[in-house]
Lab assay of single mutants.
Amino acid sequence: NQASVVANQLIPINVALTLVMMRSEVVTPVGIPAEDIPRLVSMQVNRAVPLGTTLMPDMVKGYA
């Protein structure tokens, strides 16, 4: 099963993503693939993302 990107903490809106904010985990439904974590660094989410939430492509500005 493919690992997805999961919030490692509350990720506020309009804050640049850092490695420490994200972890990889096998979850259902599948979200952004874990291998895209380096690409996500410095991008921003378009809504607050609670701890443990799977990041979906539509949550990250400029990802999709």
Results as ranks from 00 to 15, higher is better:
Gln44Val: 15
Pro33Met: 07
Pro33Tyr: 09
Val30Phe: 11
Met56Tyr: 11
Pro29Thr: 05
Tyr63Leu: 08
Val27Trp: 03
Pro50Arg: 07
Asp36Glu: 11
Gly31Thr: 02
Glu35Pro: 07
Pro57Phe: 05
Val30Trp: 08
Glu25Phe: 05
Val15Ala: 13
Asn46Tyr: 08
Ile32Asp: 01
Val26Ala: 10
Ala3Met: 14
Val41Arg: 06
Gly52Thr: 00
Val49Pro: 01
Thr28Leu: 07
Ser42Leu: 10
Thr28Asn: 12
Leu19Arg: 11
Val20Trp: 11
Ile37Thr: 09
Asp36Lys: 10
Ala16Lys: 11
Leu55Glu: 01
Asn46Asp: 10
Val5Met: 01
Ala34Ile: 06
Gly31Ser: 01
Met56Pro: 01
Arg23Asp: 05
Asn14Phe: 07
Leu55Thr: 00
Val15Asn: 08
Ile37Gly: 04
Asn14Val: 03
Lys61Cys: 15
Thr54Asp: 02
Arg47Ala: 09
Gly52Glu: 04
Pro12Thr: 06
Pro38Gln: 11
Leu40Val: 06
Thr54Ala: 05
Gly52Arg: 04
Gln2Met: 14
Val27Phe: 02
Met43Val: 04
Val5Gln: 02
Val27Tyr: 03
Thr53Lys: 06
Asn14Ala: 10
Met43Gly: 04
Val5Ile: 12
Gly52Phe: 04
Leu19His: 08
Ala16Leu: 09
Pro38Asn: 13
Tyr63Asp: 03
Leu51Arg: 10
Asp58Tyr: 07
Asp36Ile: 08
Ala34Leu: 03
Gln44Trp: 12
Gly52Ile: 03
Leu19Tyr: 10
Pro57Tyr: 08
Pro38Ser: 14
Glu25Gln: 08
Ala7Asp: 01
Val60Trp: 02
Ser42Ile: 03
Met56Asn: 05
Gln9Pro: 00
Thr53Glu: 08
Arg39Gln: 09
Gln2Cys: 15
Gly31Leu: 02
Ala64Gln: 15
Pro33Leu: 06
Asp36Tyr: 11
Pro50Trp: 04
Gln44Cys: 11
Leu10Lys: 12
Met22Trp: 03
Lys61Thr: 15
Gly52Pro: 01
Val45Leu: 14
Met43Glu: 04
Val5His: 02
Lys61His: 14
Met56Thr: 13
Ala7Asn: 01
Met21Asp: 04
Glu25Ala: 13
Ser24Glu: 10
Pro33Ser: 11
Val27Arg: 08
Ser24Phe: 06
Leu10His: 15
Ile32Cys: 04
Val41Met: 06
Gln9Lys: 12
Val20Lys: 10
Ala34Trp: 05
Ala7Trp: 03
Val45Ser: 07
Arg47His: 13
Gln9Cys: 06
Asn8Ile: 05
Val5Gly: 02
Met21Arg: 00
Gln2Glu: 15
Leu40Asp: 02
Ala16Gln: 14
Ile11Trp: 02
Glu35Val: 06
Ala3Gly: 09
Ala64Cys: 15
Leu51Gln: 13
Asn14Thr: 07
Pro57Cys: 07
Ile13Gly: 09
Glu25Ser: 10
Ala48Arg: 12
Asn46Ala: 15
Thr53Met: 15
Val6Pro: 01
Val26Trp: 10
Val26Met: 08
Glu35Asp: 14
Ala34Asn: 05
Pro57Thr: 06
Ala3Asn: 06
Met21Tyr: 05
Asn8Met: 10
Asn14Tyr: 06
Val15Glu: 15
Pro50Thr: 11
Val30Asp: 12
Arg23Glu: 04
Met56Ile: 07
Val26Lys: 05
Gln9Trp: 06
Thr28His: 09
Pro57Gln: 08
Tyr63Asn: 04
Leu17Trp: 00
Thr28Phe: 10
Asp36Ser: 09
Met56Ala: 08
Pro29Ala: 04
Met59Gly: 03
Ala7Ile: 03
Glu35Ile: 10
Thr28Pro: 01
Glu35Tyr: 10
Val6Ala: 01
Ala64Arg: 12
Ala3Asp: 08
Pro12Gln: 10
Ser4Met: 03
Gly62Val: 04
Glu25Asp: 14
Arg47Val: 14
Ile37Ser: 04
Val20Arg: 12
Gly62Asn: 13
Gly52Tyr: 04
Ala64Ile: 14
Met59Asn: 05
Glu35Lys: 06
Ala64Pro: 11
Val20Ser: 14
Asp58Phe: 11
Val26Gly: 04
Pro38Asp: 09
Asp36Gly: 06
Ile37His: 01
Pro33Glu: 04
Ser24Leu: 05
Ala3Ile: 06
Glu25Thr: 06
Gln9Asn: 06
Gln44Arg: 12
Arg39His: 08
Gly62Phe: 09
Asn8Cys: 07
Pro50Ala: 08
Leu17Asn: 00
Val15Met: 14
Thr18Leu: 06
Asn8Gln: 11
Glu25Met: 08
Ser42Glu: 08
Ala64Val: 15
Thr18Phe: 03
Ser42Asp: 13
Met22Ser: 00
Leu40Ser: 00
Ala34Phe: 05
Gln2Val: 10
Ile37Phe: 03
Pro33Gln: 05
Val6Tyr: 01
Val26Pro: 09
Val20His: 15
Leu19Val: 12
Leu51Asp: 12
Asn1Gly: 15
Pro38Phe: 09
Asn1Cys: 11
Ala48Gln: 12
Val6Lys: 03
Ser42His: 12
Val6Trp: 01
Val60Lys: 02
Gly52Asp: 11
Thr18Lys: 06
Met43Tyr: 09
Val41Gln: 06
Pro57Leu: 04
Leu10Asn: 13
Val60Ser: 02
Met22Val: 07
Asn14Cys: 09
Pro33Arg: 07
Asp58Ser: 13
Pro29Asn: 05
Glu35Arg: 06
Val30Asn: 13
Glu25Pro: 00
Met22Gln: 00
